[in-house]
Each structure stands twice: as C-alpha cells, then as structure tokens.
Design a protein around this nucleic acid. Structure first.
Lengths: 209, 209
DNA sequence: TGTACATCAGTGAACGCGCGTTCACTGATGTAC
DNA sequence: TGTACATCAGTGAACGCGCGTTCACTGATGTAC
C-alpha cells in the first residue's frame, strides 16, 4: 500500500471496496510516519492513487475517517485481550491480558496514542460509550476482574470498593506503563518485559489476599 | 493577559521583559483554549500585543518557545511534589506526593498533556535527561522510594527489584490514572478522590510487607 | 439486438485559511566625543 | 551642553506551504425498452 500512482476505476457495485483501501492507506500512513499530523486527506488520497475529493464519496469528513481507523484499532486491541484469556483461571487471565495490552501499545504506538492519549474531540461522541462496552478491551478486563472478585481470592477491601474501582486500578497500571513507553520512548527505561512482570506482580499483590 | 491590542515599546535594557510576557501569554493561551494547536506564533504575538516577527527576537523558533513553557511546567510540578513531603515519614510522603501529582494533572490538563502525553520531538533532546534529574518530580519520587526501601518496611521482592523498578511502579500508577482522566474527561469515572485514595492504597499494599 | 438514459465512481480546478518564517526597514534610546 | 552615531526593540509586507473542502464536470457502466 506504499505508492500507487494510478488506480483503475472501480466497476459499478464495487465502490465500497475503495473505502477499505482508504482505511488501509490511512492506517499504513499512520504507522509509517508515526505521526497523526501526516494523515491528511491529501496524503491518504495520494497513497491510494486517487484525488482528494474521492475520499468524500466514502467518508463525511476527516474526523469520520480517523474515527473509523480508531474503531478498527479498538477492535483489534479487544481481540488480543480476548485471545489472552486462560479459561478457568481468572488470575492468570488478568496477567496475560495485562501483558497483551502493553504489547499492543508498544507495538502500535501511534494507534495507541490516538486511541488513549489524544484529544477526545477527534472522535464522535458515540465513541466514549463504545469504549466501555462489554466487548471492548476494558470491558473484558472488567469481566476478568469480576471473576477474580467472585473467586474469593481478592482482599476484602478490594471487593468492597467494587469491580469498577478494581478494574480502573488494573487499567491505570497497564495504561500508565504503556503510555509512558509510548510518550517517552527515548528515556533509559529498564528492560521492558521485566518491568511489565514486576508491575503485574505488584498489582496482583495489591488486589489478592 | 487576555487581549492587548497595542503595547508600549520597551526601553533600552528592558527587552528581556517581553520574553516573560510571551511565555505567560503562550501559557494562558494553552490554558484558555485547552488546545496545543491554538498556541501559534501569531496567536501568541497578538495576545501580547506585538507583531509575529518580534517573537523571534526572544525565541529561536516555535519549538524552543513551547519547550520553555514545558520547562516552567515541569518546575511547578516538581515544586508541588516537593511541597507534599512529610518529613521523617517516607510512606506518608509517597501517598501525599501521589495525590499532589494527580491533582496537578487534573488541574492543568493541557500542561500535563504536553509534558507527558505528546510527541517527544516537541522538545529539544536535552529535555529527556532533565526529566529524570534529581530535582524533577520523578527524581523526588525516586528519593522517597529509596527511603521507603531503606526503612525496612518494603517487601523483599520489591527491594530486590531495585528503586528504579519500584519508582516506575508508582509513576505508572499515578500517571496512568492522571492521563486517563486527562485524555477521557467525559467518561463516567467514579469519584476522583476515592479513586486516587484506592489507587494509592493498593499500590502501597503491593510494595509494603 | 440495438439504443437512449440514469447512475455511479471519480476528476480537475479552485476557494480561503492560518501557519512558520524571512527580510529590509524604522524610529526611539542611550552613549561617546 | 550639544550633536553624531551605534544599538536596540519592534514593524510591515511578503514568501511559500499544505491543508480541508466545494463545485461543476466527465466518462464508463449497467439497465429499460
């Protein structure tokens, strides 16, 4: 998807196919340039091999285009968090989900930046609610935390504070580490994996009896 | 510092005074508009009551101007973290510093965004090192953690992992919560103070024996 | 089987905008003689 | 005490840029009769 100087015109019913190519190009541009600013309507159009006005046949405006890119990313993060589940072992699941979360963020820093570190006006209002849905990454963590609390292995004060507080705790931990790594990649961090394991370890010790 | 349509020309030795006014205006603009993009050379010049080229007499370019704004903010955050110290009680100090940190971030969200959530190229290279200096907010936290570890009240595995890992743990916690609040102010968060206390509580439980 | 026509995908040119930055300048201020 | 002059703070006009978006259009594609 790097340079496409010209592009064959789509046949009658095949217009929507360009829509996907636009999203792919926008995402590729984001990854390649590692800069949200580089994802302009014009740059996306050029990458796809089309003129700028064509974009508007498929997306209302730039905000909606970027929003769609976000939606895909949120879906992919959720997929990875789900894939990390260890059936029947909520504590192992929580640790694995934490690892998956940090990995996603460090492997896709610009996605992560847009998703969790940008100004929220970048995306339509609906998105704030979607973020906390049952199927979102955070929603899956809440489910896991709920199982941990129900397993009887959590400290009483954590149970009392409720699953939302406990989930926020976990989220703050993994997001905190992830976003520091994303925002300041050049600081002299200690070994990433060791840091992640230590963080998960301490976080679980704070939650479990 | 809101609108200054015209401005008296400074006397001979008083040029450097405009420099401070420019910084104040840039910061006020940042706070008022809550958007980094709104802080343009032209907007700052207008706020100060001066033409754009004047800025270049005091700052090499836009990056250096924004960098100076950052330096001030880092200094102020460090001051607040220092002010939170409780002499002779490193554990109480750690909790108080965590509270001060989160408060700073939520009260100055746009500063916080620039300092810890933006793209790092915004600031000269020297800044990465300065960030971890003894006198920085993080440097103060490292000091406090060092005292906690030395006090004999920390868990052996935390002592073994070292003060840097333990400090990162604390930083990831408070930064994680702060940056979520800053990035997603419109999500239905539970009560902020209760969340902060719970977070500090659990974090300390993970560290102390 | 042939033709008129509606639809659809995409184009080319232009709009107005705000931006960072440069350049040659102006005119007040202080200093040296 | 008066005057020539260097310095300093700031100006006015312009540069080139890339941007999001709009508008009237073109020409291929499929469909109806």
């Amino acid at each position: 998807l790097t340079p496409a100087q010209q592009r064959a015109r789509a046949r009658r019913g095949e217009g929507p196919q360009l829509r996907e190519e636009i999203l792919d190009a926008a995402e590729a541009l984001l990854v390649r340039t590692a800069s949200e600013d580089a994802v302009s309507i014009r740059a996306v159009a050029e990458a796809v091999g089309v003129t700028p006005p064509s974009i508007y046949r498929h997306f209302e405006d730039k905000t909606h285009l970027l929003f769609e890119v976000c939606v895909r990313s949120f879906g992919r993060l959720a997929d990875e968090v789900v894939a990390a589940e260890v059936p029947g072992d909520p504590i192992a699941t929580l640790a694995a989900q934490a690892r998956a979360y940090v990995r996603f963020g460090t492997e896709h820093p610009e996605h992560y930046r847009i998703m969790f570190m940008g100004n929220q006006e970048l995306t339509p209002a609906q998105y704030a609610e979607e973020l906390l849905t049952e199927n979102s990454a955070f929603g899956r963590v809440v489910s896991t935390v709920r199982e941990v609390l129900a397993s009887g292995r959590a400290r009483p004060e954590v149970v009392e504070a409720g699953e939302l507080q406990a989930s926020l705790l976990v989220w703050a931990n993994v997001h905190g580490l992830t976003s520091l790594l994303v925002a300041k990649p050049n600081l002299p961090w200690p070994d990433r994996d060791a840091t992640v394991e230590h963080l998960i370890d301490r976080c679980l010790h704070g939650i479990l009896r």
